[in-house]
Structure formats: C-alpha cells, structure tokens
Amino acid sequence: MTDVLLKVENLKKDFGSLQVLKGIDQTIRRGEVVSIIGPSGSGKSTFLRCLNLLETPTEGRIWFAGEEITAPGINIDLHRQKMGMVFQHFNVFPNLTVLQNITLAPTLEKKIPKAEAEKQAMALLETVGLADKRNEYPRRLSGGQKQRLAIVRALAMEPEVMLFDEPTSALDPEMVKGVLRVIRSLADSGMTIVIVTHEMGFCREVSDRVLFMADGVIAEEGTPRQLFENPQHPRTQAFLREVL
C-alpha cells in the first residue's frame, strides 16, 4: 500500500499581481523525507506554507491524511494539530517558559492534563538537551536552543508530518549542527518531513527525494543522487554550480 499523507493538485498562489506558485502537483508518502531546494524567490517557502494553509492557495486542492483540507467549511485547526511546523525565526512564545511553550497547545487543544503534558514535555526536552532550561524564558536561550525548543513544541502535538521552513538559515554557524542533528534523528525515527533548506550536504544525506523549485514550479525532482550528480534541467545545473 502506498500510504499517501499529503497530496497537492495544481496548486497556485498569487500575491497581488505576482504569481508565486504556478501549478504544483506533488504526492508525499508517509515516512518520506522530502527536501525543497532552489534559488530565493522560487516559491519554496510559499509552497511549504500552503501545505498547512498558513497561506491560502489561490487555486488548487490539498489533501492531508485522506481529507481535502482546501474544501470549504473544514476546521483547519484540527488538521494543523497533526502538522508540525518549524520556522526560520523560531517564533517561540517569549511570554511563556520553555516548558509552557511546549505544553500550551496540548493542554488547550488536546485537553491533556497539565501534569501529563509536562511529563511528556520533559521527555522531549531531554532528547534535545534542554531539560535544565525548562523554567527559563526564551530570551535566555541561544538561537540554536530556541530552534530546538520550537521543534519539540511542534512534536508535543504528536504530528504526522513536520514542515521545516529554512530551520537553520537564521542561526549562527556553530548552532546549525545541533539543530540538524535533531532533524536527522527525527528522520531516522520515521517521521514524515518536508524541509525547505539551503544546507545542501544535509539535504543530500537525509532526503529520500529532493524537489528543485524555480519560478514557481518544481523544475526537477529525484533522489538526492539523481539530482545532485546528474541534474537534467539547466536551471538545476546552474543552481548547483552556484551553491556547491
């Protein structure tokens, strides 16, 4: 059984007169790690943000776990609870402690008792080496620590897919490794991952499939091997010449 988790059909997105996505068709299977690469302005982040409807598509349909989330009248909050997202600028909640950042959504939306949510949060914090920071406010954390917090905050909702939007682009170089290590172990655990990234080495190692986007379309896709060693599209070739 090919277990399809996300399906995108003819996805288009305009910002005013600017067409950012020009028709994208994609199927992402459960357990797959899919990287999206491409020059800036190619629509990578917009595509990712359309997957949980942080951006409303102008046209096209999206299915998540068999249900069309672009259908009218759907409660998108319920679906978002199963789609974790990690942002370039972390977006941790500065008014809440590390622990509260993690337990907020599970206690409010999944009605998990506070004690249980905290126990689960502590277990997650252990895995990313932040257990001793549980009562700190985010302003006392480094960029790398904030991003690891953001990742476990999303994981606390037990999502079926994790969406990463350039998770290491805003980090100091020495912080990148720690965050990538966390994402890699997630990938190893079988989590479905869609990641927009500029970390080509990482992308090559962990991805099952790489999408190369240019000018609002997926210009080329394939295994990391196909794409990095034998790119077919001239845009892909030009891009890889620039970044590798």
């Binding site: 977006n91 953001a150 999303a154 909702m157």
Partner: peptide, 14 residues
C-alpha cells in the same frame, strides 16, 4: 510579531 500568530496557528491553537 506576525510569526507569533503563525506559530500558534501552526500548532492548531484556535
């Protein structure tokens, strides 16, 4: 910051 709103939305918080 609009990122705060987006983070809350992405977690499915009403």
């Amino acid at each position: 910051d609009s990122g705060q709103r987006e983070a809350a939305k992405s977690l499915g918080i009403r």
